[in-house]
């Protein structure tokens, strides 16, 4: 068993020349390295300048995505439940959020929401609210989470609905509660169904984290803009930034494929 899986691993590794994904990654890494080695000025300078932006991009993406997974599940379960009022609220939430561009939502949370808080503070005479200043990263994570959880809830809903009714009935007939049946019977099967669309959501979120550059989050895109503004070399700057995004999304794609491979149903 161990031998066989190891062999198939090497086989896949050595078979890389036939796999367009590996080819692409090698090509991108090669270009990146070549640019940095052959022309450290400006490419190494750009990389060093935007390095902390990469960290912020990864941080914002990972934290938002973890929250999206949680909030999306809650909203998805509510939309499948018999709780009429909550279900109505959840449906309105999903429809409203999906109808507004993500960029507009991010701007709303960073600019409009704090001014609302300050107005409320003024009318109540609360100094703490009047002095409220938004934290860019926190507001960006909030905005991305609320936006993407609406889409994610639909992914969960479709995944749960794809599991045959008989599974829930069998679990309930054995005396399990609704939540026990969800936890132990339905969700473990639904996860395998929704993994590909969840992976897509992750990669889209990673790319859309660049939108947070307009609300003062010092992530990769914003750092790129700052470098361009200081250096006036747009071509090299955005070539570098594009390649860095490409490396991250390609790696994420592969991680998703690997998780899919690991969690598939044993035959």
């Amino acid at each position: 068993m161990g031998l066989q899986s190891r062999r198939s691993f090497y086989f896949r590794f050595l078979g890389a020349y036939r796999d367009p994904w590996w080819l692409l990654v090698f090509a991108v890494l090669l270009i990146l390295t070549a640019l940095i080695v052959i022309q450290p000025n400006p490419f190494l300078r750009i990389l060093l300048f935007v390095r902390d932006g990469i960290q912020v991009t990864i941080y914002v993406t990972l934290v938002s995505f973890a929250l999206v997974l949680l909030l999306g599940l809650v909203v998805g379960l509510i939309r499948l439940s018999k709780l009429t009022i909550l279900r109505g609220i959840a449906t309105i939430y999903v429809e409203v959020i999906r109808g507004i561009p993500a960029l507009v939502q991010l701007i709303f949370w960073y600019f409009a929401f704090p001014s609302l808080v300050q107005d409320i503070g003024r009318s109540l005479g609360w100094q703490a609210l009047m002095d409220y200043r938004p934290n860019p990263v926190a507001m960006a994570i909030l905005g991305l989470t609320i936006c993407y959880a609406a889409y994610m809830s639909e992914v969960y809903r479709a995944g749960i609905q794809s599991i045959p009714r008989g599974q829930m009935e069998a679990a309930r007939s054995l005396g399990m509660s609704y939540f026990q049946a969800m936890r132990y019977v339905i969700l473990p099967q639904a996860v395998r169904v929704i993994l590909p669309p969840v992976g897509n959501e992750f990669i889209t979120l990673l790319k859309d984290s660049s939108l947070t550059s307009v609300v003062a989050v010092p992530e990769l895109t914003r750092r790129g803009r700052e470098f361009m503004a200081a250096s006036f070399i747009p071509l090299q700057t955005w070539l570098m930034v594009s390649l860095l995004y490409l490396v991250m999304t390609l790696l994420a794609t592969r991680v998703v494929a690997w998780i899919e491979y690991k969690t598939r149903l044993e035959k």
């Binding site: 008989g166 009935e169 054995l174 509660s177 019977v185 473990p188 099967q189 149903l265």
Partner: peptide
């Protein structure tokens, strides 16, 4: 729930948990 723990049920489509 109390009744369900006292009553076993067998279905036409078996409904075993495939995972």
């Amino acid at each position: 729930n109390a009744v369900r723990t006292e009553v076993g049920m067998v279905f036409q489509q078996f409904n075993l948990f495939p995972h």
